[in-house]
Amino acid sequence: MTGAQIIFIVVALYTLGSALMVVTTRNLIHAALWLVSTLFGVAVTYALMNANFIAVVQVVVYIGAIAILFIFAVMLTRKDMRDSGPQMNKNWWLGALVAVLVFAGLAFMLSGWSGFSKVAADLPSGFDSVSLLGEALVSPQAYVLPFEVASVLLLAALVGAVYVAFNRK
């Protein structure tokens, strides 16, 4: 087993363990903090795949904005945190069964695919994924339209969130 594989296994176990804590912890603030820890693990996974930009954006967007938003939302609904009562509905075993079945199905389907155990080629030296990504995002031949649509979506979400959460007295 090589060093890269050991690092991957450690990171993967850490990520999955944190993710399990997210869905099982009683205290919602702790669940949100475990989510932060999971997102860190995912960011490291991106870094292992030489996707530096995605890794850093993961930290900026998810931990800097989304996780903080979650913590705020948990605190704003503070009266209803209900740490003591059951955190899961009565069909929890059905949910667990569905989750396990989905994982088994995905694993079964993927294991039959020819590219499943493919090994990545080394990045060519001087390969600058950041500038390629920047060009792809604004090039009319590539992804400028999805990029613009995403910005419109964000604007709509901004307006929508303010409208929905606004407290009309």
Binding site: L16, L20, V23, V42, R82, Q87, V98, V102
Partner: peptide
């Protein structure tokens, strides 16, 4: 796939909307 299944489990069984 494992992360997706864990997330799915959370969506299906948690009672709190957050």
């Amino acid at each position: 796939a494992a992360l997706f299944s864990i997330g799915l489990f959370g969506v299906l069984v948690r009672r709190n909307a957050v």
